[in-house]
Design a protein around this nucleic acid. Structure first.
Lengths: 191, 191
DNA sequence: CTGCTAAAGCAAGGGGCTTTGCTTTAGAAT
DNA sequence: ATTCTAAAGCAAAGCCCCTTGCTTTAGCAG
């Protein structure tokens, strides 16, 4: 991306938009020529830039999901996690968010290493937990946060069960209550 | 399936095998002619029977996953859940199980109703919980079981994080401990 | 303003997926 | 054993995806 502004960025955004719109419209297996037409772009541009439909879908999903649900800094672990979980909840209740998550999972290859983007989100979470620990709060591990909060959201979306409003709060409360009740059994941190 | 035994079943199994083998071999987007060749079957047979590659993958995944991890009847809720969770853990540590789960999620369409097969597994779980309740044990809801046990397994597999041995026990313990510590906040049952 | 170059557009060709009408086979029924 | 039929196999044709070499454009640099 030596020319991030200008035409290059315009085409990229148009193509990403086209992908999301087509998926949202039920055109699940629209191929590259169809995406290009929707984006008002020449198919060759997509082939040259992304190489394959899956690579394009993955790029679109990661790019769009990256901007959702940052972790706030509220001064308390509970506040931070609630703020983050609310953001996740909003994304997971949103049709486009659901579609992007599904596209992300569907295009991940079983044998590759975890995505850089996912590792970064884990690091953010770890930083939040470190701050809380420095304040003297009792803190769960990143794995526990993922198990208690993120996993239930993802299960609901991927298996088409409803995400009720307030789910994020329930899940964060479960996490913090469980830690208070039983600080022992879980495994160490992790990527 | 008016003729479940004989050639029909043989072809079905051969095709399902071919799907799993190709996916396991990294041939993620092998199309129907390639699957047919691997199965020693004419492509037309697949087109006529399943209609599309996605329908075939979904059928293969559901058929193969249906036979894994039944819920035992041990006389205690904890025993039942541990037995079930061990089965899930075994499937999720298995390469083929991981591949089938990924295929299942990838081929689910966002707007259709939940799978009959998934509803049936939920009913099995509910029956187990009902038995425990009749014995006077404190019981979680189906949703809580899914959140605490199944969701973390699926998150690990779908996002390519390792499933450590003993994970099932840890997750079941979390579920039962949480119920003991805080019987209040969660939502009702559900499909 | 002029020149440079990365990226987008264009066009043509090959290849493989998918469809469809017909034939053949194998399992079930009588 | 004979008959019947659902399902599998075969062959050919159309379609569309993908590739590739070349041309054009638009943004940045001097």
């Amino acid at each position: 991306m030596t020319r991030p502004g200008g035409r290059s960025a315009r085409v990229r955004d148009a193509v990403h938009d086209a992908v999301v719109e087509l998926l949202a419209a039920g055109e699940i297996d629209a191929a590259i020529p169809k995406i290009a037409e929707r984006a008002g772009v020449n198919p060759t541009s997509i082939y040259r830039r992304w190489g394959s439909r899956d690579a394009l879908l993955l790029d679109a999903a990661v790019t769009r999901l990256r901007s959702t649900s940052p972790i706030p800094d509220t001064g308390s672990l509970r506040g931070d996690l609630l703020g983050w979980a609310d953001g996740v909840e909003r994304a997971m209740r949103d049709r486009h968010g659901q579609i992007l998550l599904r596209a992300l999972v569907a295009t991940l290859r079983p044998d590759e290493k975890p995505l850089e983007y996912l590792r970064a989100r884990g690091d953010d979470l770890q930083a939040t937990l470190d701050k809380a620990e420095a304040r003297g709060e009792p803190v769960p591990s990143v794995d526990e946060v993922l198990d208690f909060v993120l996993a239930p959201f993802y299960l609901r979306v991927l298996f088409r069960r409803p995400v009720e409003p307030g789910t994020g709060t329930v899940l964060v409360d479960r996490l913090l209550t469980a830690r208070r009740a039983d600080p022992a059994p879980s495994a160490g941190r992790g990527g």
